[in-house]
Computed example of a mutant assay.
Amino acid sequence: MYSSKADGYETPASGFPVSSANQFYPSVGGGAAAFNVQSQAKVAWSTGLCNCCDDKSNCCVTCCCPCITFGRIAEIVDRGSSSCGTSGALYALICFVTGCPWFYSCFYRSRMRSQYSLKKSPCNDCLLHFCCEHCALCQEYRELKRRGFDMTIGWQANVERQGQGVGTVPPPLQGEMSR
C-alpha cells in the first residue's frame, strides 16, 4: 500500500523512512507537507551528560538495570517497530554474553541524534557509550521525555495520547530559535 505525496513522491504508507539517505517524515499536523530532518541545523541536547540525577527514578533504574532504560529508548527511537521488552532483553543478552552492551546502545544514540538533529557532543557516540554507558542512557531518556514522550507507556500509547495516526512523529522540542 502506497500513499501519494503532493509532489508526486510515493512512500510506503507505514510512516517509516524509506532510505537513510533521504528521510522524510509526515509533518506534525498530518498534512501532505514533509520536511527533511537532515537539512535542519543541529541543536544541543536539552540536558547535560552528567545531569543523571535530574530524574532520580530513572537514574536508579538505569544504574540497577540499564536494559529497562535502553528498551524504553529503543522502542521510541524505532517508532514502535521493536518492543521495549525485546530490545531490553537483547541488550541484557549482549551484556551477558559479551560484556559490551555499549556496542549495541551507541547505534541507537546515533539514530536518535539523526532523527532529532542533535549535536554530536561531547564526543563520538560509541566512545561516549563505552566510557559513560549509564550517563548516556539517562541523557537519551531525559531528551525523549522532554520532547513529550511518556517513556513508561511505549510508542503506540504515546501516539494515541498525542491524537495522531500511527507512524507520525510527536511534536519536536521547542527550545532555542534557530534558522
Score class of each variant (00 low, 15 high):
1 M>Q: 14
2 Y>S: 11
2 Y>V: 10
9 Y>H: 10
10 E>K: 12
11 T>S: 04
14 S>F: 09
14 S>T: 15
16 F>C: 06
19 S>L: 11
19 S>V: 08
20 S>V: 06
21 A>K: 09
22 N>Q: 14
22 N>V: 12
25 Y>K: 14
25 Y>L: 15
26 P>T: 05
26 P>E: 03
26 P>C: 07
28 V>F: 04
28 V>N: 04
29 G>C: 11
29 G>T: 06
30 G>F: 07
34 A>Q: 15
34 A>C: 15
34 A>V: 15
35 F>G: 14
40 Q>Y: 02
40 Q>E: 04
41 A>G: 01
42 K>Q: 04
43 V>M: 13
43 V>E: 10
45 W>F: 07
47 T>W: 01
47 T>I: 02
50 C>N: 09
52 C>F: 05
53 C>A: 15
54 D>G: 09
56 K>A: 02
57 S>N: 13
58 N>W: 15
59 C>T: 01
60 C>Q: 10
62 T>A: 10
63 C>I: 05
64 C>H: 08
67 C>H: 13
67 C>F: 14
68 I>G: 05
68 I>Q: 11
69 T>V: 12
69 T>Q: 02
71 G>Y: 03
72 R>H: 09
72 R>L: 11
72 R>S: 10
74 A>L: 06
77 V>M: 11
79 R>I: 08
79 R>A: 09
81 S>Q: 14
82 S>Y: 08
83 S>L: 06
84 C>M: 09
85 G>M: 12
87 S>T: 08
87 S>M: 10
89 A>S: 14
96 F>V: 01
97 V>N: 06
98 T>R: 07
102 W>H: 02
103 F>D: 09
104 Y>E: 06
106 C>P: 06
106 C>V: 08
107 F>A: 05
107 F>E: 10
108 Y>C: 01
109 R>D: 03
109 R>A: 03
110 S>M: 11
110 S>R: 14
112 M>Y: 02
112 M>R: 04
112 M>E: 13
114 S>I: 05
114 S>Y: 07
115 Q>H: 11
117 S>R: 12
119 K>H: 02
120 K>F: 06
120 K>M: 13
120 K>L: 09
123 C>D: 07
124 N>W: 05
126 C>Q: 02
127 L>H: 11
129 H>F: 10
135 C>K: 13
136 A>M: 02
137 L>Q: 00
138 C>D: 01
139 Q>A: 05
140 E>Y: 02
141 Y>S: 01
141 Y>T: 00
141 Y>V: 00
141 Y>A: 00
144 L>E: 00
146 R>H: 08
147 R>V: 00
147 R>P: 00
148 G>T: 00
150 D>C: 07
151 M>Q: 00
152 T>N: 14
153 I>S: 12
153 I>V: 15
154 G>E: 13
154 G>P: 09
157 A>W: 04
157 A>F: 03
161 R>P: 01
163 G>D: 03
164 Q>W: 07
164 Q>V: 08
167 G>D: 11
168 T>A: 11
171 P>Y: 03
175 G>K: 13
175 G>A: 14
176 E>V: 04
176 E>I: 04
177 M>G: 12
178 S>E: 03
178 S>H: 09
179 R>G: 15
